[in-house]
Simulated scan of single mutants.
Amino acid sequence: MNTEIRLAIPHDAAAISQVIIQSLRQSNAQDYPPDVIAQVEKSFSTESILTLMNQRQVFVATVDHQIVATASLDRDVVRSVFVAPDHQGFGLGRTLMTTLQSIAHDANIKVLRVPSSITAEGFYLKLGFRKTRDEFHGAERTIIMDLRLSPD
């Protein structure tokens, strides 16, 4: 199994969209009602991914040259970490997060933040993030978490 972490390119947008929507429908749907999943999906169309690629550093994880995971860094905020359901549990999310943490550290970012889904809260806790508060957008609960990268 040949795995690679790399910066996303525009040609990747459709595959990134597919990974995110698949993950939302199979993994996140266990923690959120269908109307919330449908609403979140709208933010991850191919066109939306292309727009996000101009605003953030978007990374992909590939297995045998197929995109199976993604994560992005928006200054000091980790966003859109998704692993295709059939590739979850093999360390791809952790590897993507290590990449983002390294880039943030090199950019002299002291605290990395993440708006976590209910589904991903345990994942971020295992990586050392701590919960700071909950935010609600209608029925959608987001857990705001942070990780100190370097002492003050």
Rank of each mutant, 00 (worst) to 15 (best):
V19Y: 00
V81Y: 00
V78D: 10
N54H: 11
I67R: 05
D64N: 15
L24W: 11
R79E: 15
Q22T: 13
D74H: 15
D31F: 12
Q55K: 13
V83P: 10
K42A: 13
Q30W: 00
A61H: 09
D35P: 07
D64I: 01
D76H: 12
Y32M: 03
Q55W: 10
A29H: 03
T46M: 08
V68G: 02
V78C: 01
Q55G: 04
H65W: 02
I20E: 07
D76E: 13
L52G: 08
V78N: 06
Q39H: 13
P34G: 06
V63K: 14
T46S: 10
P85C: 02
I37E: 03
V77S: 07
E47D: 12
Q66E: 15
E41P: 02
V63S: 03
V83Q: 03
V60T: 09
L50K: 14
S80I: 04
Q39W: 13
A84M: 05
L73Q: 14
H65S: 13
S80D: 11
N54K: 12
I20F: 05
D74K: 15
R79N: 12
Y32A: 02
V40M: 07
Q30N: 10
R79I: 01
S48R: 14
D86R: 09
R79T: 13
P34S: 06
A84E: 10
E47Q: 11
Y32S: 04
S27D: 11
V40E: 11
V36N: 04
V63P: 04
K42W: 00
V81P: 03
A29T: 03
H65R: 13
D35V: 08
T62P: 04
V58C: 12
D35A: 10
I67Y: 04
D64A: 02
D86H: 09
I21R: 15
S80G: 11
F44V: 12
D74G: 06
Y32L: 07
L52R: 08
N28F: 12
S45V: 05
L24R: 04
V60W: 00
I37F: 00
V63W: 06
V78M: 09
F44P: 15
R75S: 10
P33F: 02
A69G: 12
A38I: 05
A71P: 05
T70C: 14
A29C: 09
L73M: 04
S23G: 09
E41K: 07
Q66P: 01
N54Q: 14
M53I: 08
S72M: 05
A84R: 11
Q39P: 02
I20S: 07
L50H: 02
V60E: 02
Q66W: 01
A69F: 06
R75V: 14
S23C: 11
P33T: 07
E41W: 05
P85T: 03
Q57E: 13
F59R: 01
S45E: 06
T46C: 11
S80H: 10
